[in-house]
Write a protein that binds this DNA or RNA. Structure first.
Length: 559
DNA sequence: ACGTGGACTTGGAAGAACTTGT
DNA sequence: ACAAGTTCTTCCAAGTCCACGT
């Protein structure tokens, strides 16, 4: 009936610590002269000071937005005095924070232990709730602290002040018959409601985009786990009818109706390239990123012939989180789509790729999803990502499966995982320490190789010795050397595998696919089949999230 | 039918915690 | 014991999709 729980009790959120004013000796300078700031202005200044080493603070938009919002917190005198951000010197504040974090690192064991215990106490008190007779872990029980908004990519709002959230901003959601959370002394909640049609425990409206933020349960909770399971079951249902759907959209490429042809091409891209749906967004409110339906002419190039291949489409656009998507694919004969090639050559680059000439509006995700819903119950664009990710993992694991050593098996698994991450375009910035850590590994490999050749020489010597003397002692020595070589060879192999894995993973982020796209039962089954301990694949958090799958899947599980 | 707000999933980066080698 | 390196956890932004109201 749409209700998500019958009973819900919790203690409410933990608020961000109050602002602690700077010690007097830490000065802010305007135009070279020290200046004491009012507490509100000083607090916002510290947000900027903390980020001084970050590239953000050099960006024009960031500086402009910050300065505008900072001025709103100033007293009228401050406002008249401070008129130019370039004349502001936050470096003492910046050094103060660096010193503080250094001091934190240098704390004694006891002090660190004390902090740890305090955190643990907070977690025990606020980090859990009671939902339908189960104690469940809350995902984010701390309210986001105030600070400067950091968007990704070219975000027009970067640098704006994210304001402090007070109890008066918070809506609490819990059972009527539960012990309601108490607001801090002298304050009130915005509202206490009892809505069991939703899963969140508390919410507030954030001031940058005006969107709502929630406090929800941890992925290990029943409510998230069931949903996750359901998601993979939907993807498995798609597996059963994907052939039919593919046949249909190929047929639709020939449709007389432009609308249907466009829909079919979009669907093809979503299926083949695992593109996101691409909802329309309000212009100027966010970074300019696109998905399938919001692709513009400027994002693709068509090559009637490229190298050996005919009809190549080149994609180059910024997707979610402003991550660049770049790919070239030869399209199937029938998708050489008259209309795609036609309309693109004449259209302006900023036109959407799927405009509509006959109806007023371009292809929208809602239209696409409505169509998908008719093809299969519960089918939406993102199900294709889940389906293609999971089926790819399963296939790759079949191909890569081997009776190799454990490290080799894990390399195989990571490679399969990597194939999925590449499909979904999950990229990361190469780690700052990447080159160095590769070098270190190489040094280790070289050392191991030297060790190996030394050991081989020793074996030879031992053999010669044995030949000469033929006694038991020398025979034993030969055996020992053999064993030593075997051990070193294993170690060397392990290092080499590690190096390969790391190199291949330089710019690939495996986490997102592992956590959100791969049916965990595939991995559990693979572990059981090949005798790989599940801990090698999933860490503690991941095992908690996928507890349902670990319980459920046997070695013959098929996605 | 359409547009908007709301709820929930997905995403990479940064910071914290742990491990390893010296 | 400690510094460096690696892995885990947290953070919070940015998507998807649906329900609801007009």
């Amino acid at each position: 009936d749409g209700s998500k729980w019958r009973f819900l009790e919790h203690k409410g959120p933990v608020f961000a610590p109050l602002y602690e004013p700077m010690p007097d000796k830490v000065k802010f300078y305007y135009d070279g002269k020290p200046m004491k700031l009012s507490a509100p202005a000083e607090e916002v200044a510290t947000f900027f000071a903390k980020m001084l080493d970050h590239e953000y603070t050099t960006k024009d938009i960031f500086r402009k937005n910050f300065f505008k919002d900072w001025r709103k917190e100033m007293t009228s005198e401050e406002k008249t005095k401070i008129t130019d951000l370039n004349k502001c010197n936050f470096s003492e504040m910046n050094e103060y924070f660096k010193a503080q974090s250094e001091a934190r690192k240098q704390m004694s064991k006891e002090e660190k232990q004390k902090i740890k215990e305090e955190n643990e106490r907070l977690l025990q008190e606020y980090g859990f709730c009671l939902m339908d007779n189960h104690k469940e872990r809350i995902g984010n029980f701390r309210i986001e602290p105030p600070g400067l908004f950091r968007g990704r990519g070219d975000h027009p709002k970067m640098g704006m002040l994210k304001r402090r959230i007070r109890p008066e901003d918070i809506i609490i959601n819990c059972s009527k018959d539960s012990k309601h959370p108490k607001p801090p002394p002298g304050t009130k909640w915005k509202e206490v409601r009892h809505d069991n049609k939703v899963t969140w425990l508390a919410s507030w409206t954030e001031n940058i985009q005006g969107s709502i933020k929630y406090i929800m349960l941890n992925p290990s909770s029943r409510i998230k786990g069931e949903k996750d399971w359901q998601k993979y079951e939907t993807a498995r249902r798609l597996k059963k009818c994907v052939d039919r759907i593919r046949t249909q959209y190929r047929d639709d490429w020939k449709s007389k109706e432009m609308r249907i042809r466009q829909r079919a091409v979009a669907l093809y891209f979503i299926d083949k390239l695992a593109l996101r749906a691409g909802n329309e967004k309000e212009e100027g409110e966010t970074a300019d990123t696109v998905g399938c339906c919001s692709l513009r002419v400027e994002h693709i190039k068509l090559y009637p012939k490229m190298d050996e291949q005919e009809y190549v489409v080149e994609f180059d656009f910024l997707g979610k989180d402003s991550i660049r998507y770049y790919n070239k694919i030869p399209v199937e004969k029938r998708v050489r789509l008259q209309h795609l090639f036609h309309s693109i050559s004449s259209a302006s680059p900023i036109c959407t790729l799927f405009p509509s000439f006959h109806s007023r509006c371009p292809l929208q995700t809602s239209i696409l999803n409505k169509h998908l819903q008719e093809l299969m119950d519960g089918l939406t664009a993102k199900v294709f990502r889940t389906y293609n990710a999971s089926i790819t993992l399963q296939q790759q694991l079949k191909e890569l499966a081997s009776d190799d050593s454990l490290p080799a098996k894990i390399l195989s698994y990571n490679r399969a995982n990597r194939a999925v991450a590449i499909l979904c375009n999950h990229q990361r910035a190469p780690p700052k320490t990447f080159e160095k850590s590769m070098q270190n590994l190489q040094t280790k490999i070289d050392e191991k190789q030297n060790q190996l050749s030394a050991a081989r020489k020793q074996l030879k010597a031992a053999k010669a010795d044995h030949k000469a003397s033929h006694d038991d002692k020398s025979k034993k020595a030969v055996e020992l050397k053999r064993k030593a070589i075997q051990r070193i060879e294993e170690q060397l192999m392990k290092l080499q595998v590690q190096a390969t894995d790391r190199e291949e993973n330089k710019q690939i982020a495996l986490g997102t696919s592992k956590l959100n796209y791969l049916d965990p039962r595939i991995s559990v089954a693979w572990c059981k089949k090949w005798d790989v301990p599940i801990e090698k694949i999933y860490n503690k958090t991941q095992r908690e999230k996928f507890a349902w799958a670990i319980d459920m899947a046997e070695k013959d599980y098929e996605f």
